[in-house]
Each structure stands twice: as C-alpha cells, then as structure tokens.
C-alpha cells in the first residue's frame, strides 16, 4: 500500500507539473515579427496646406556622427527613396525641384545599423544634407532639428533603423537655426535574412508608415 501511495502521489505531481509547465508561452519566432513602425506628428499642423515636397536623393548614415560605427548598406537607397516618394505622391503631394521652386515641405531620409541610438536628438545635421541645393535661406552649418514631441518620446533603437523626416521650412522654431519637423517615421527591425528579404520588409513597412499616417493627405 505504501508503494501504491507513493506511486499515486508521484504520478499526480508529474501530471500537475506537466500541465503547469508543458506549454510555456512563446515569443518572437520570425525576423519580421521584430519589425516596428512608429510615426510621430505635430498636433495642430494643417497638413492639407502642404502640396509640394522635395527630398535629397540619398539616405544619410547618421550612425557615425552619433559616435558609433555603422555598416549601413546603401545598395537599395534608390528603391527605398522611390518607395517613399511614391507614398507621398499617393497622398497627393507633388515633387518639385527645390533649387527652382520652394517646396512646402522637405523630406529627408536617414538610417543607422547600430544599437541603442536615440533618434530624436538635436544633433547638427547640416554636415549630412548641407550639400543639397534645396534648403531655403536661414539654414546653415550648425542647424539642428526641432522635434515637437521630444522629449515626450525617447526612442532607443537596436539593429537596423530607417528614419523619414518631414520638415516645414515655413514654421518658426523655438530656437533660431532649427528645422521644424512636423512628421517623422521610424522603421526598426532585425537585419537578418537576404538583402532581398530585408528590402521586401522595408517596402512593406514603408507602406505601413503611410497607412498609419492618414492625416498627411493633402486633401
């Protein structure tokens, strides 16, 4: 009887333990599940007032200037920029040549492949895009960003990130020599898989950027 009792209790214990621990909840299983799309905008801005835009034709690697090393792959810059332009055009914007016509907004795109970088800091950016001929008067060496949502949103990034920034040169900023960002998007995810797979995920996420920013429509 003692052995039977021990056997019974052992079996019950095994059963309870198995039921309790047998299917511990899982987590991220695929690389695409690490993708994150975040968008930010300045409240009160009338986006319908903006009809035209221009953008520099390159994606700037902001990792090095932030004090870290970066291995940003520029192989697909052209496709990514074209995708972003197509998204803006689909929302009703018209691209103009800023060297000839002052655009309502300027869109700049940057990327980084290092860890723990805060995107929304007021670092000087003139060194990256200063060469571009489309900047209106007033911007120059030492110009920084003005993010209306900062420091409310502190953003730390790991692995690969792509940032899209929409600047309204007509808005006054709290400090002189700042560029007023009225909208920004961040795409973040693990850089795993083939280049084509990564590009496909970036394209999907750029679509998501505009899908979750319906207020950007020009009408």
């Amino acid at each position: 009887m003692l052995m039977q009792r021990v056997g019974l209790r052992f079996c019950v214990g095994m059963l309870v333990g198995a039921l309790a621990a047998g299917c511990y909840p899982g987590g991220i299983e695929t690389v695409s599940q690490t993708d994150l799309v975040a968008t930010f905008f300045q409240k009160g801005v009338d986006f319908t007032a903006n009809k035209t835009f221009d953008m520099p034709d390159s994606i700037v690697d902001i990792g090095v200037a932030a004090g870290a090393s970066s291995t940003l792959n520029h192989k697909y810059d052209t496709q990514i920029l074209a995708k972003i332009q197509a998204g803006l055009v689909a929302l009703g914007y018209t691209r103009v040549d800023a060297t000839a016509t002052r655009p309502d907004v300027i869109v700049v795109v940057s990327g980084i492949t290092v860890d723990n970088y805060s995107a929304w800091v007021g670092y000087p950016w003139w060194g990256y895009w200063g060469w571009w001929g489309g900047w209106p008067a007033g911007y120059g060496a030492g110009s920084t960003w003005y993010y209306p949502w900062s420091p409310v949103v502190v953003t730390g990034y790991t692995s690969g990130s792509l940032f899209i920034n929409m600047i309204d040169p007509d808005l006054a900023t709290p400090q002189p020599n700042q560029a007023f960002s009225i909208w920004a998007a961040a795409i973040n995810g693990m850089l795993e898989g083939t280049d084509a797979e990564i590009l496909a995920r970036i394209n999907t996420n750029i679509d998501q950027v505009f899908a979750q920013s319906p207020y950007l429509r020009t009408q």
Partner: peptide, 15 residues
Amino acid sequence: GTQTFQQAAINGDQF
C-alpha cells in the same frame, strides 16, 4: 496592429 497615442502611432507584433 497599430496603437495610436496623442502624437504617435506604433505598429508591430506585441507579445
């Protein structure tokens, strides 16, 4: 799905 906040929206898989 997408979660919206006052000045932001975030899309991604949540666990």
